[in-house]
Design a protein around this nucleic acid. Structure first.
Lengths: 129, 129
DNA sequence: TTGACAATACGAAGAGCTTCGTAATAGACT
DNA sequence: AGTCTATTACGAAGCTCTTCGTATTGTCAA
């Protein structure tokens, strides 16, 4: 048990992780209710998913209370990087600018967003001169 | 037959699409040989995949010759955008800068790449003032 | 202690993806 | 025509993911 998460989370697992990232450690019921606001699904479905994720090492749980409390094993940033890296390699051969082209294209990008992106680049440029 | 591709290509389908994008219209054998350089897989596996993709409307084929010639139905850019949009929504709630943060983080990004990114932003800024 | 309720554990069905073996078919060559 | 080879067609197995129903277990109150 408690392996490192070698593989990227599946679609449903990601939905659950996002709840855990925003809510912090949560019970099955809490995750279930958070997800219920977006889509319809059964309580035991969420339970089963969390159990599977536990064996995969994606989440860990505290069993002190009757209702176990789950939390993500990896910080959100690490998993997000893993997911974006996956697309980066599989679709864009590792080229960040190629990725960016297609991310901006076809979507209305606000001026604020563009400024934020520019600020990010400045930050990176400064970090490695 | 020949439906529009509503859903995003699977992992294997993407590998095939990438071959078709770079090679242009190709026979099963050509795709098979291109993929063989990266991984080991059977000829009929590629054939089957291409047949499935045909029914899905992901690719179309010319049957004039004995060896059918396959090509992607959608331009590469459109499919790539579809794939990056999917990640953008599922992981980053649509925020391009959030995506960018995690794309750059944890990878050595060359100065050249950063310049290219900056150029992209300039281009976009100019397009919508 | 027992009944009611809430939580967990478990099994299994159904769907989609990936892979390949086998059969059928078309074309080329003798 | 008959044989060989390359190609397509098809079915099915094995796998993962998703979903849920049912059984079991724990807790609290009356």
């Amino acid at each position: 048990m408690a392996h490192e998460p070698l593989q990227k989370p599946t679609a449903s697992e990601l939905e659950i992780l996002r709840v855990l990232w925003t809510r912090g450690p949560s019970t099955v019921r809490e995750v279930y209710e958070a997800l219920s606001e977006q889509k319809s699904l059964g309580y035991t479905t969420v339970l089963k998913l969390l159990q599977i994720m536990t064996t995969k090492g994606t989440v860990r749980r505290n069993e002190d209370q009757r209702a176990h409390v789950y939390e993500a094993c990896q910080p959100a940033a690490k998993t997000k990087r893993q997911l974006v890296d996956d697309v980066l390699q599989r679709v864009f051969e590792g080229s960040a600018s190629e990725l960016m082209i297609h991310a901006l294209e076809g979507r209305p990008t606000s001026k604020k967003e563009l400024e934020e992106l520019r600020r990010l680049l400045d930050e990176y440029e400064g970090r490695k001169p």
